[in-house]
Write a protein that binds this DNA or RNA. Structure first.
Length: 113
RNA sequence: GGAGUGGGCUGGGCGAUCGCGGUGAGGCUGACUUGUUCAGCCUUGCGGAGGAAAGUCCGGGCUUCACAGGACGCGGUGGUGGGUAACGCCCACCGUUCGCAAGAACCGGGACAGUGCCACAGAAAGUAAACCGCCGAUCGUUGCGUGCGCCCGCAAGGGAAAGCUGCAACGAGGUAAGGGUGAAACGGUGCGGUAAGAGCGCACCAGCGGGCCGGGUGACCGGUUCGGCUCGGCAAACCCCACCGGAAGCAAGACCAAGCAGGGCGAAGUUCGUGAUACUGGAAACAGGAUCACGGCGCGAGGCGGUCCGUCUCGUCACUCGUCCGGGUAGGUUGCUUGAGCCGACGAGCAAUCGUCGGCCUAGAGAAAUGGUCGCCCACGACAGAACCCGGCUUACAGGUCCACUCCGCAU
RNA sequence: CGCGGGGUGGAGCAGCCCGGUAGCUCGCGAGGCUCAUAACCUCGAGGUCGUAGGUUCAAAUCCUGCCCCCGCCA
């Protein structure tokens, strides 16, 4: 995701979940493709450190996206810098998407705004 | 061989494969304004972070701002010469300090233009003075004394204090050698000199200033002579001197699209000039007032980052301008990488650097591209990620490697 | 990206311009007052002045580098 409007939309749905590794927001979007947005704060370190976290997250999304349902927008925010690694991100991403998409389907259809 | 000084280069490598952002070619699909068009997808080729990309501390380019003038103010720099687009940077040299040396460090102009500060202690913290002390030659007062003189006496001797001399005390006065304080105290040593002393005089030494001679573009250096003998520190205190500085910054700026709601406050004109238009009077020349445009003067607002002068722009009665509050947008294109560029050779120069010739094109994103897996090698990989672009400075950093030089030891 | 402001006892702030003594309020500790607590009174402890250098006889204060925090600009 690239536009600020998409990010605002996902945050506004307030459908979020976390384990010790990631904080994930999730929402339905208007296109069929499942997309991801990243947000890494300055407390994780300098530019090199933050770039590494974003690359790991993008790689984890690339490897697991075939298993995700279509038409979703995700925002991934890493939490504990000490536990960050590519396998941890993969595992955490799969688990959180499964949990949140189940909640999305149980929830009543969102009112047209 | 050991110890050390100064500087340069480098910043894991090779390969396979799946991906990421850029770009070129080919193909497919769609759109319309049909073409060297735009958008999406597929295939394929090419290239894809740093020496500091960092901190944002200086200097420029570039862009915009109603061309930027003068005086004052404000800020910066500070040995000399050179380099440069420019600099607070670099090079060479000078001076001071440190080091046996190679070398290193230095915000390194001015304290006889002025003002100010120097706590505590100390007599005194700055051009003069004098607390303890020393002296008391000279002048004065007092005391002692009896050498001269004076008085008594023939004499031995005795007496007195008006004079001279001697001694002592005090005062006027002289002095800055010594004392002690302090971060810092008015040159040091010796001899002479004196009442005591003192650059008061002399010799040597240290320092300051002036003249002259020589060397150097210059900072400055060397020599010589004279002077008064000798005038503390702080300008990273105010300041003085010399030189420099318009401001803001790619979130600058340009274009396109989309979207919104207005409101408050303020504004001085004119008996002025020129031109045009129609009207009135007149046969005409022309005259009269009216409206409009431009200009002048005045007024208002704004710019020239502060003030004044000066100057420029806009407005001047209103569908205008200025200012304040409020409201809307957060999309796209461009700026965007060919540049004080990089590499090599030759030449000028001690060097920084410059010139000529030849070759090369080397990231361009925008929620922001370098990662995953596997194999091999070794010293097992530090600090760290472009965001308009350059030149520096500063700071961080595992290692590897090269060059020049110094000192010590041994051998020849 | 650009530009401002600030780091002083446990907390919030003075002192810095113009250099020599680090001060105020709250809090903390001890004692007093009270039957007891609070309030009140008396006394006391507690500060590498963010950090590293420099200027100076002397630096929280002046100058330079670095670190951290806060704020503003589309």
């Amino acid at each position: 995701m690239r536009s600020s409007r998409d990010f605002e939309h996902v945050y506004a749905q307030k459908l979020k979940g976390a384990d010790g590794v990631l904080l994930l927001f999730l929402a339905k979007n208007s296109v069929d493709v499942t997309r991801i947005g990243l947000s890494v704060s300055k407390k994780h370190g300098g530019a090199v450190e933050r770039n590494r976290l974003k690359r790991w997250l993008r790689e984890a999304f690339r490897m697991e996206r075939h298993a995700f349902p279509g038409g979703l927008d995700l925002i991934a925010i890493p939490l504990a810098a000490g536990r960050a690694s590519l396998p941890a991100f993969r595992q955490s991403l799969v688990g959180l998407v499964r949990r949140l998409s189940r909640r999305l389907n149980q929830a009543p259809p969102e009112p047209l705004s």
